[in-house]
Design a protein around this nucleic acid. Structure first.
Length: 279
DNA sequence: TACAATGTTTTAAG
DNA sequence: CCTTAAAACATTGT
């Protein structure tokens, strides 16, 4: 059977789904490594070293934090993976021959673990040592953890008080894993206009946003992260990418605008009519 | 053809 | 040093 790999760009839940696509190789040795050594994907790491270091090691475990993934190998090998806009992980047959965009392939006895990324906005890095690399351990706590308190949210939004709330939600330092669809989903559910300065999100509205951030993360992981199911009916995400998307509640056409270079959709009845540069 | 795409990083400016 | 704005990155699909 040939599995079908969804063509979706990865945010929190999608990353978690793709991470699990390599679970079939847990506990197994890497026989050989095939990679494109000069691919942009390997910027900042020595691809030749990576190739030499991983061959013969065993894949032990993996974890996702926000949009980052870390795969641990025996003898202190750590492989960091970011999928960018077009990256994905999948498994192929053991005799797999990498294609043009299959930049990294780990050959195992019963399958090959593949990382593909056409645009190469993604990234692969390798760390050798007894513990996980610094960039990983310094990563902010998950939004679903008890560490992400209302006070943490308030402090972050105040620090970036001049940014439109939509742009602030995309900052990975504050909201690890949140991407374009999740940010719009959260603002729609919270009834906040995407252009609202972050510093103006206060009081009851702030508290509601905090609850919704956690709710959307949990549910996205439960549905999409599990098996890449579509989000339930009633989610804004189902409408956002349609040419004539409508508000799931009012059935009126969504407002669309490029905000800070990112496509943004909102409902003027739920979130108001505010646009960029009011004068 | 020209433009847009669910993401970061760099560079410049305030 | 801090925050913000915009361009750059490379490829594919409409």
């Amino acid at each position: 059977m040939i599995p079908i790999y969804p063509l979706a760009m990865p945010e929190l839940a999608e990353v978690e789904f793709f991470r699990k696509q390599w679970n079939c190789g847990l506990g197994q040795k890497i026989g050989a490594v095939r990679l494109h050594p000069h691919a942009r994907l390997f910027r900042g790491t020595n691809a030749a070293d990576l190739e030499k270091a991983l061959a013969g090691r065993k894949l032990l475990r993996s974890e996702a934090r926000g949009k980052q993934m870390l795969f641990e190998f025996s003898a202190g090998g750590w492989l960091g993976v970011h999928l960018g806009m077009t990256g994905h992980l999948r498994q192929e047959r053991p005799d797999f021959a990498p294609g043009r965009h299959d930049h990294l392939a780990l050959l195992q006895k019963t399958q090959t673990l593949v990382f593909s990324d056409a645009r190469q906005f993604g990234r692969v890095r390798f760390h050798h040592g007894p513990s996980a690399p610094d960039w990983w351990t310094r990563f902010p706590a998950p939004l679903t953890s008890s560490t992400f308190t209302l006070a943490v949210l308030e402090t972050f939004l105040r620090r970036h008080g001049g940014l439109p709330i939509k742009a602030a939600l995309l900052l990975q330092d504050g909201f690890p894993g949140v991407g374009n669809w999740m940010a719009d989903e959260m603002l729609w559910r919270a009834g906040i206009n995407p252009h609202t300065p972050s510093g103006n999100v206060q009081g009851l509205v702030l508290r509601r946003l905090w609850r919704i951030i956690r709710w959307v993360c949990r549910h996205a992981l439960r549905v999409i992260g599990k098996d890449f199911s579509d989000p339930p009916a009633g989610w804004l995400m189902n409408e956002k990418w349609k040419r004539h998307g409508v508000c799931p509640i009012h059935k009126t056409r969504l407002q669309k605008e490029t905000l800070r270079g990112r496509t943004t959709a909102w409902c003027i009845l739920c979130q108001g009519t505010q646009k960029a540069n009011p004068s």
